[in-house]
Amino acid sequence: MDIYTSKLSPAVDYGAGAFLLLIAILSIVGNLLVLLLAYKRSSQMKPPELLSVNLAVTDLGAAVSMYPLSIASSWNHYWIGGDTTCIYYGWMGFFFGVASIATLTVMAVVRFTVSMKLHSHMEKITKRTVQVMLALTWLYALLWAVFPLIGWGAYGPEPFGLSCTLAWAEMKEHSPSFVISMFAMNLAIPAVIIVFCYFGITLRLYFYYNSKENISIMQNKVKLQRRLMLIAVLISAGFIGCWTPYGIVSLWSIYSNSSITPHVSMLPCLFAKTSTVYNPLIYYIFSKSFKQEVKQLLCACIRSKGCRGSHPENLTENTVCVVCDGTTVKEELQLKPLFRKHTELPIHNL
């Protein structure tokens, strides 16, 4: 049988295609909203906010460059384009995936650095520094995505025939070092760094909050930091949680003597693709100001007279990049006006 022929039934193919279509729509719409709102307030953005914008770019890039081809192939019951599009699809998936995990790792390190100096109002990071970090994340992702093209690793079809990724079975024989290095550098080590950073942040916030020397202003800073850390943890956990089952199944297919059925190999693959949807949903659920601006934007688009809400400029919480930055959250913390200028996160003084 042709390696690009679906190993699934037509009904399952149509179902998988419909699922991917839903994921593509949610991902494109959600991440476009994040980027649009970030653009509207670009003049007010702080340097670390670029990291969250970069994460939206990686998710949007994956959804636009990959999902249409996968959907069309599912409904065609055959991978469209053969070897050329297979390599393209695998390259795009690996490239944007590595860029995402690298961005999440940098975010965790930045937040940990900020938590070490809650009392400080001095500059901690500049826009230039963030731009350099972003450039390095993209270069890092590009480097790993190019390796299979030059012989260290390989791209190939998934066992069920309607998606392409790293050719696990082929690499077991020809590039075992790539498999070990890739999982270590792009899943295990980043996950350890992320867990260490957020665990360290949790401890520091706990001690700051319970310190007898802290005044109420410092406790307000800690509360806001704690809320932003929760969002950051959810975003990181969502990405790692989505890709871990796929990584486990891939390693199992390489090192286990038992074969994996096409249906079993398809499920973690589909689940991993949902990682591009979670971030806008997390922003929408946990950021009241982001939710408010989304509603106002939608109301403006449909010109509904029934839509009411406060103006965006009256919202002081960071509306998009709540992972790395934030301002006074009057609505949530109900701080008194005289504390406003004192309760900004230290990360604002970057």
Rank of each mutant, 00 (worst) to 15 (best):
residue 144 W to D: 03
residue 120 S to T: 07
residue 182 M to N: 05
residue 90 G to K: 00
residue 162 L to C: 09
residue 263 H to D: 14
residue 297 L to G: 06
residue 215 I to N: 15
residue 70 S to Q: 13
residue 30 G to Q: 01
residue 130 V to W: 00
residue 169 A to M: 14
residue 15 G to Y: 04
residue 315 L to Q: 01
residue 248 I to S: 09
residue 74 S to P: 02
residue 317 E to R: 02
residue 325 D to L: 04
residue 194 I to C: 01
residue 218 M to Y: 04
residue 99 A to G: 12
residue 27 S to Y: 03
residue 230 L to S: 06
residue 151 G to A: 10
residue 203 L to W: 11
residue 223 K to A: 12
residue 344 E to N: 14
residue 162 L to R: 01
residue 241 G to L: 03
residue 264 V to A: 15
residue 350 L to I: 11
residue 83 D to Q: 10
residue 165 T to C: 08
residue 303 R to Q: 15
residue 315 L to K: 01
residue 18 A to F: 13
residue 178 F to N: 02
residue 274 T to W: 07
residue 113 T to Y: 03
residue 221 K to M: 14
residue 114 V to R: 00
residue 197 C to E: 00
residue 267 L to H: 06
residue 326 G to S: 08
residue 266 M to E: 05
residue 152 W to Y: 14
residue 231 I to P: 00
residue 189 I to Q: 05
residue 277 V to Q: 01
residue 294 V to Q: 03
residue 288 K to Y: 10
residue 59 D to S: 12
residue 172 K to D: 08
residue 90 G to T: 01
residue 174 H to N: 14
residue 26 L to A: 12
residue 86 C to L: 09
residue 44 Q to P: 06
residue 162 L to P: 00
residue 350 L to E: 03
residue 346 P to R: 04
residue 15 G to R: 02
residue 78 Y to M: 11
residue 92 M to Q: 11
residue 114 V to S: 02
residue 203 L to S: 11
residue 62 A to E: 03
residue 254 I to Q: 04
residue 163 S to A: 14
residue 19 F to E: 05
residue 306 G to H: 15
residue 276 T to H: 05
residue 255 Y to E: 06
residue 279 N to H: 09
residue 43 S to R: 10
residue 316 T to L: 11
residue 256 S to E: 05
residue 1 M to G: 15
residue 110 V to K: 01
residue 5 T to I: 15
residue 40 K to Q: 15
residue 309 G to N: 09
residue 344 E to H: 15
residue 174 H to D: 14
residue 101 I to M: 09
residue 169 A to Y: 06
residue 269 C to V: 08
residue 175 S to Q: 01
residue 98 V to Y: 01
residue 59 D to V: 03
residue 305 K to W: 10
residue 211 S to I: 09
residue 233 V to L: 04
residue 331 E to H: 12
residue 327 T to G: 09
residue 12 V to W: 06
residue 327 T to S: 14
residue 337 P to T: 10
residue 37 L to H: 03
residue 43 S to C: 08
residue 218 M to S: 08
residue 151 G to M: 12
residue 257 N to T: 15
residue 192 V to L: 11
residue 69 L to F: 13
residue 289 S to I: 02
residue 343 T to R: 03
residue 22 L to T: 13
residue 296 Q to F: 12
residue 235 I to W: 00
residue 224 L to I: 13
residue 344 E to V: 12
residue 280 P to N: 06
residue 339 F to S: 11
residue 219 Q to T: 04
residue 300 A to K: 15
residue 272 A to N: 04
residue 90 G to N: 02
residue 341 K to R: 15
residue 345 L to G: 00
residue 142 L to T: 11
residue 82 G to D: 06
residue 24 A to T: 05
residue 100 S to V: 07
residue 44 Q to G: 09
residue 230 L to V: 13
residue 273 K to S: 08
residue 99 A to F: 04
residue 312 P to D: 10
residue 48 P to V: 05
residue 240 I to Q: 06
residue 57 V to Q: 00
residue 210 N to Q: 11
residue 19 F to M: 12
residue 66 M to K: 02
residue 6 S to T: 12
residue 260 I to P: 01
residue 3 I to W: 05
residue 21 L to F: 14
residue 100 S to T: 09
residue 252 W to L: 12
residue 113 T to F: 06
residue 344 E to K: 12
residue 21 L to G: 14
residue 144 W to I: 08
residue 246 Y to Q: 10
residue 308 R to G: 07
residue 183 F to W: 08
residue 111 R to E: 00
residue 219 Q to N: 11
residue 320 V to F: 03
residue 348 H to D: 13
residue 178 F to L: 07
residue 341 K to M: 14
residue 347 I to E: 00
residue 338 L to E: 15
residue 272 A to P: 03
residue 77 H to Q: 13
residue 129 T to K: 07
